[in-house]
């Protein structure tokens, strides 16, 4: 009786210990194995992107881009995509990331805190728009939003929060709609929340909206756009201030060289939802964005 009980106790504790180890072990083991295979070159280039959609899917999709950047810089590239926008800003400020894909507002935050260096952006990013969508018949204009539940994406998103909120106020939408809005955390999550009527309306990035309708993820007969914002400047690639300028140059050039005419470039451009070519960034163009953020109380 006593023996079997103490055995049961021992077995239970060993199981606990094994599970605790399993949580710890395999990860370390894999890094050790990779290092042994010589995969881990010294000082990889650390790249990050704001999670505009599902981070794990973005990671998978970004493989050709990573390969291109590795070719261009001659260094290994480690891409990390955290769970929220703020983490990318934080990582760049802390010097844990060398190059990052920002939204307009996150770039403003990063340059304010750590002087991020703008590199390149898609030509469409210079005149970007947010789409206001709904699945309700009684929402036809901004005025109909009074008393309705509204969804933004991430609180730090330019096209998913800052600019839609800014324009809503400018257009005289009932301020309680903005005050009581909820945050889905990502553009595709906003679209699905609207489609499933968990909210009455929402605002999101036009590029993501196009992709979702093209891929059939959202039925355009049920969910429709009822308003589009005036243009504003948005996404860009930027580098940490301390990054070697030659490396930064190489990266910028790699993007600038992407050509929709070349078949080998087309998948990468599609992935980045770029219709045309990449262009250099004019940092001064972000001043209105900064002003809007201050007006919205999102930047101090």
């Amino acid at each position: 009786m006593t023996v079997s009980r103490s055995r049961a106790v021992l077995a239970c504790c060993l199981l606990l210990a094994a599970l605790a180890w399993a949580a710890d072990g395999p990860l370390r083991l894999s890094t050790i194995l990779l290092a042994a295979l010589g995969w881990e070159a010294d000082a990889p280039l650390r790249v990050s992107m704001i999670p505009t959609t599902d981070p794990s899917r973005m990671l998978r999709d970004a493989e050709p881009l990573v390969a291109r950047l590795e070719k261009a810089t001659g260094r290994t590239v480690s891409l990390t995509i955290p769970q929220n926008y703020a983490a990318v800003v934080e990582a760049l400020v802390q010097g844990q990331v060398d190059v990052a894909h920002f939204g307009g507002f996150t770039f403003v935050q990063a340059s304010k805190r750590a002087g991020a260096v703008p590199l390149v952006q898609r030509d469409r990013d210079r005149e970007f728009h947010s789409k206001f969508i709904t699945a309700r018949d009684d929402v036809r204009s901004l005025g109909d939003l009074r008393g309705k539940r509204f969804a933004f994406g991430d609180v730090n998103s330019t096209s998913g929060h800052l600019m839609p909120a800014y324009f809503m106020r400018e257009q005289g939408v009932d301020p309680t709609v903005v005050d009581r809005a909820i945050y889905t955390g990502a553009h595709d999550a906003t679209a699905l929340a609207v489609a499933e009527r968990r909210v009455d309306a929402g605002a999101l990035d036009e590029a993501v909206w196009e992709r979702l309708t093209q891929e059939g993820k959202v039925d355009p007969t049920k969910v429709r756009v009822f308003w589009t914002t005036p243009p504003f400047v948005d996404y860009l690639w930027a580098a940490r201030k301390e990054l070697d300028p030659t490396v930064a140059r190489k990266i910028a050039d790699a993007f600038l060289a992407l050509d929709p005419g070349k078949p080998e470039d087309r998948p990468i451009l599609e992935l980045l939802s770029a219709r045309g070519r990449y262009v250099t960034v004019d940092a001064a163009a972000y001043a209105p964005l900064r002003e809007a953020a201050v007006r919205e109380g999102l930047l101090r």
Binding site: T2, R5, S6, V9, L10, C13, L14, L16, A17, A20, W21, D24
Partner: peptide
């Protein structure tokens, strides 16, 4: 539990704690 069983549990608890901290 008494005697050996108790010791084993104590030991295993310690091991589990250290591993969890790691």
């Amino acid at each position: 539990l008494t005697g050996r069983g108790r010791k084993l549990v104590t030991l295993a608890t310690l091991v589990a704690v250290v591993l969890s901290f790691r």
